[in-house]
Design a protein around this nucleic acid. Sequence first.
DNA 1: GTGGGGATTTACT
DNA 2: GTAAATCCCCACA
Length: 200
Amino acid sequence: MGGDPRLTLAGPVLDVAPRLLGGLLTAGGVTVRLTEVEAYAGEQDPGSHAFRGRTPRTQVMFGPAGFAYVYFSYGMHWCLNVVAGEDGAASAVLLRAGAVVDGLEHALARRPGVRERDLCRGPARLTRTLGITGEQDGADLLDPASALRLELPAAAPPDVRTGPRVGVSGDGAAFPWRFWVDDPSVSAYRAAAPRRRPAG
DNA sequence: GTGGGGATTTACT
DNA sequence: GTAAATCCCCACA
């Protein structure tokens, strides 16, 4: 699967998401190998920011694949998505976790005292470790001159696991659109609608 | 102009 | 396990 990476990312988001696992994301002098992602499937996905249609914040999602959608959450966190699907599909893949493979010194400098496996264990930790903020919203991930670069793996890892998305409530939680590989950097946070001990 | 909620992380009990 | 931190975005009026 050589091919034009832009074309690969322009495929159906549920195909694109697992293809990002093993990919290399570089920013702020740090490179991570992606270990966990989540798919957000456009305007018909109740869990997606694009669910309510095009807005100033989500306009990047409605554009062509391969660009960065960076949003701000909970008053302090940035999260990074890769826009996927055809132009106008408004689908994207949230990058939830990764393992640092280069620039460890820069990563540790940004996150003093944090264990190596926790550096990018979670979507907001990942952006913080790589120094990603809203300034990178709309960046072309496939442009070598970009502050944010993504390199797709030659092939998807053979052992991709799937499960419900994290932090998504309501109907959007029904689909197993979270993809990960077995790695210590994969986030381990509770689901959006945590259950108490199962009745019975 | 106002109000409610959020694709989270961290610290504390 | 529970709660605090913290502010942008969006829907309404």
